[in-house]
Nucleic acid binder design. Sequence first.
DNA 1: CCTTGACTTAGAGTCTACTCCATGGTGTAA
DNA 2: TTACACCATGGAGTAGACTCTAAGTCAAGG
Lengths: 129, 129
Amino acid sequence: MTIKEVSDKYQLSTDTLRYYEKVGLIGPISKNKSGIRDYKEVDLRTIAFVKCMRQANMPIDKLIRYMNLYKEGNKTLEDRKQLLVEQLHKVEKEIQELEKAKERLCYKIDLYDYQLLEKNLSMEKETVL
Amino acid sequence: MTIKEVSDKYQLSTDTLRYYEKVGLIGPISKNKSGIRDYKEVDLRTIAFVKCMRQANMPIDKLIRYMNLYKEGNKTLEDRKQLLVEQLHKVEKEIQELEKAKERLCYKIDLYDYQLLEKNLSMEKETVL
DNA sequence: CCTTGACTTAGAGTCTACTCCATGGTGTAA
DNA sequence: TTACACCATGGAGTAGACTCTAAGTCAAGG
């Protein structure tokens, strides 16, 4: 699979894909004789995971640490789990904060609706009289 | 209320408070004869709102636009509401994405628990034999 | 009076995560 | 075979949101 195809499939720019590879988040990706990347199934799975974790706002350096632990094999299971648990907590907290913000937004929007209603009523009055 | 007290109350650094004022997100804050800021009740309410919107990941420039509309008064009600509605949609989408990430994290953590269990069992076997 | 600690300013610096650029090679359809 | 879109590299540049620094002012306590 070419970098363009991967880019389209996962909605990550080709620049981003190369950047992720450079910093060690994915790959190294195998290349054909003329140096062009050929993404394999396992690469795609890594990319999907990375994308998901990035959407969970996991910072790049933490993700890199996770990937490095992964490469070290079985003895790092506990550490890797720990990283994910930490991230889970962060995600839960963020969801809570967003929910709070959401409520406030809804409340304010309601207020605006009310104010707009009043404004329109008074304009109508003006027009009628 | 001094900048330090506000900083403690809202968990925003004094630098950040001054920065918000500089870019026009809050204030201008009134100052005493020797030039020291004195935050009033209305400032605190603005700060609380700004903090909430920032936690909702509303970009600074959008917030500034909102604040400017607010200062223009009644005729901008519709526009302001529009900004908030947009932001609400963004927040809802982000919550969804975080929920997705959360599920994936939970799933992976479960897998790790299982793998760790297996590992410990086999270690126990080794010890016993 | 002097020190200490909190306050002020303007402006430079930092961090994260990309994103863009210049330059040059590749592959395939007409 | 030439045009075209795509690929590569290293390194510079950007956006957003702070964060820090230097240099100075001010009020209170010892």
